[in-house]
Nucleic acid binder design. Structure first.
Lengths: 109, 109
DNA sequence: AATCGCTATATTTATGAAAACATAACGCTA
DNA sequence: TAGCGTTATGTTTTCATAAATATAGCGATT
């Protein structure tokens, strides 16, 4: 018997960040490219682009900055705010899991 | 910005109880019938039956007891163990939400 | 101005889960 | 033993989401 959980944050009732988006952000941070991140995650570029676009639109300030064209075609950078989001989200998730594991121990009669 | 969460319990990697199943159990408890519960929840009888069947198979002891045939066609009772599951799950979920709300307050810079 | 890899976006196709539909079996009651 | 409403189970159809495919545009570099 294992307790499982998922957390996410909504803005105006729409999903803002959750596991998938956080993982995507981390991959973009690593590769500085939406397309490279999508490839690494076996996700379509379109899907990745849409997720990042929604995040950017819902966020108070941009989560990623995208550059079109240029020497290597362009690229995408995760902003400081984006990096903070990743950290905070993962921290909260870890805390949640720890809490639940603890509580769950004392219910299994 | 709202923090959201879902919790569920797995047994051998398979979903044992979660929101949908708990609500279904509660409805079965109320109506003493799988088909009546399914109707009330706008769920197909088959879906409801499958969910309860999986729960029963994964549980250490039965969650519901089903009777086929009889004066009114039969019926289904939620066992004491099933009732306990409902209570424990809802309690844990409430605790989880409270915890997350609290933690979330202190991250919104 | 030609190239390159990326962002941006529309359209079509696949896929898997849920719903819908159909039907059998059961056992008390009358 | 006929009928009723339930449990039980197989088959087909829908539908929403994801994936696949296609194509345009961008701009520093050479």
């Amino acid at each position: 018997m294992e307790i499982k959980s998922r957390i996410w944050i909504e803005e105006k009732g729409k999903p803002f960040i959750g596991f998938g988006r956080i993982n995507l952000l981390k991959e973009v941070e690593k590769t500085a490219s939406i397309s490279a991140a999508a490839r690494a995650m076996h996700m379509s570029y379109k899907k990745a682009w849409q997720l990042l676009d929604q995040m950017n639109k819902l966020a108070l300030e941009p989560v990623v900055i995208k550059n079109v064209g240029g020497k290597s075609g362009g690229g995408t950078q995760v902003t400081d705010y984006g990096v903070l989001l990743i950290q905070k989200f993962e921290e909260l998730n870890t805390q949640c899991i720890t809490f639940l594991e603890e509580e769950f121990k004392s219910w299994q009669s």
